[in-house]
């Protein structure tokens, strides 16, 4: 008995593109999320993280590139995921367009703040 519990044949539409991007960002993220969580939360620990620690890590350009990709893949995936959840409750065309735009603007502003911090780097207090 081969009872399929899920059919994977989405119509070619903009929703299908969102669907695919959830999966593309999901695959990319595996490389960034697990190392990040294991290193920072488990191995280093929150008691050893401060301004100095961040400055030391970011002295290496490769970690900045890593954190930049971590930021963009996770936050983009997360906001698209929140959109997906909200689409389950909002059905009017205007409502859906509003949700997409509001989340898009939030995505842009918060990503920009994170990106500026990574590129600008750690500042010394009181300067």
């Amino acid at each position: 008995m081969a009872t399929k519990v899920r059919n994977v044949r989405p119509a070619v539409s903009s929703e299908a593109r969102w669907w695919l991007w959830m999966r593309i960002t999901g695959i990319l993220m595996v490389v960034f999320v697990f190392p990040h969580v294991i290193i920072k939360d488990v191995i280093v620990g929150v008691h050893n993280i401060d301004l100095n620690y961040v400055a030391q890590v970011w002295a290496n350009i490769l970690w900045r590139v890593f954190d930049f990709l971590l930021l963009f893949t996770t936050f983009t995936h997360g906001m698209m995921g929140l959109r997906q959840v909200l689409m389950d409750y909002i059905h009017s065309a205007t409502g859906r367009r509003t949700v997409t735009w509001v989340l898009g603007i939030l995505w842009f502003v918060i990503s920009l703040a994170g990106a500026i911090a990574i590129i600008g780097g750690v500042q010394q207090p009181g300067m």
Partner: peptide, 16 residues
């Protein structure tokens, strides 16, 4: 977490 981390640039005296 993105906001608190961006303090290292925008408000370093508040990060710790």
């Amino acid at each position: 977490h993105i906001i608190d981390t961006s303090f290292v640039y925008f408000a370093p005296e508040l990060y710790d």
